[in-house]
């Protein structure tokens, strides 16, 4: 019935027929304090496979290319439509979502097989799963919300020109996947471990302060520009710009512009950064001269 819709259509590529099987190398790590190691899997190729379905097959197979039984690879995913941002990982070395990484295309580019690694800028929890808490913390630091009076009915929102909406909408499509941060040469990994005798709350506080002191990243800078151009959000623009001029703020950006090149949503991140550059310049001058 509905699953009858699985594909037997030939692949759309004009190249040599795709291989019957292919190799997947996965960089695994059992836990944060453990060493990482490579593992090889052989997967039977099917039409229209993506990396998610490869990982699903690997979990079902539960054995390596050499036939050794192994635990399923841990990885993060949810929507599989590239709108939730969960399944970000390094596929053949580059940061992207596993759901939109089509196997046939990967094999054309790299016939030896597929290589999977966890994102390198975030602490590994296990295998391909990383903790992106720092990225969400940045949204707190940037006060990335509209501080409305309350949730009772107070009438319609502010009018907005279609032109402004067209600027805001792409920025609002950001799914916090972390690709821009992974590819940023100025965004470096922070991995802390809990000290002996430290409570969860103390550890969390130490972690938060470490995150706040390090680069906030294109992701949050762009969100600041989203809220600072909203008719209501504008009213608190200064607070967000303060966050961008604090330690780890926009000044850390080195203009490598990888963020915009790897963004799966094609968000104009470098435009946001430059706009934020202008806004923080003016904001700082105003503050300094008390204008």
């Amino acid at each position: 019935m509905i699953q009858a819709a699985s594909h037997d259509a030939p692949s759309s590529h004009d190249h040599a027929p795709p291989p019957a099987t292919f190799t997947v190398r996965v960089l695994r790590q059992d836990a944060p304090d453990q060493p990482s190691y490579w593992e090889k899997h052989t997967i039977v190729r099917e039409n229209d496979m993506n990396v998610i379905s490869v990982l699903q097959r690997m979990a079902a197979q539960a054995e390596t290319a050499d036939g050794n039984p192994v635990t399923p690879v841990a990885w993060d995913c949810n929507c599989l439509e590239e709108v939730c941002g969960a399944c970000t990982m390094l596929i053949n070395g580059r940061t992207r979502q596993a759901c939109s990484a089509l196997v046939d295309k990967l094999l054309v580019d790299n016939p030896e097989g597929i290589e999977l690694r966890p994102m390198s800028k975030f602490p590994v929890l296990r295998d391909l799963m990383v903790s992106r808490a720092r990225l969400f913390r940045a949204l707190q630091k940037a006060k990335a919300w509209i501080p409305v009076d309350g949730y009772y009915d107070l009438g319609s929102g502010p009018k907005q020109s279609p032109a402004d909406q067209e600027v805001a909408y792409p920025l609002s499509e950001c799914m916090s996947c972390g690709c821009c941060l992974e590819a940023c040469p100025q965004y470096t990994k922070i991995e802390l471990t809990k000290r002996d005798g430290e409570t969860d709350a103390e550890f969390k506080a130490r972690e938060t302060s470490a995150y706040d002191g390090a680069f906030i990243g294109a992701h949050a800078i762009s969100q600041v520009m989203l809220f600072n151009t909203h008719p209501t959000g504008k009213m608190n623009a200064g607070e967000r710009l303060d966050a961008l001029t604090a330690e780890g703020g926009i000044q850390v950006c080195g203009n490598a512009q990888n963020c915009v090149a790897v963004c799966p949503k094609h968000i104009p991140l470098t435009t946001s950064i430059a706009r934020a550059g202008r806004a923080t310049t003016l904001h700082s001058l105003k503050k300094f001269f008390d204008l």
């Binding site: 580059r94 470096t188 080195g254 490598a256 990888n258």
Partner: peptide, 24 residues
């Protein structure tokens, strides 16, 4: 100090502007 705060990844992301970041 700025140079020491970053890590080049040009060999993974070989975009022109990334090359320029590295060249800078």
């Amino acid at each position: 100090w700025i140079i020491r705060s970053g890590e080049s990844n040009y060999f993974t992301y070989n975009y022109v502007s990334n090359f320029r970041w590295w060249m800078q």
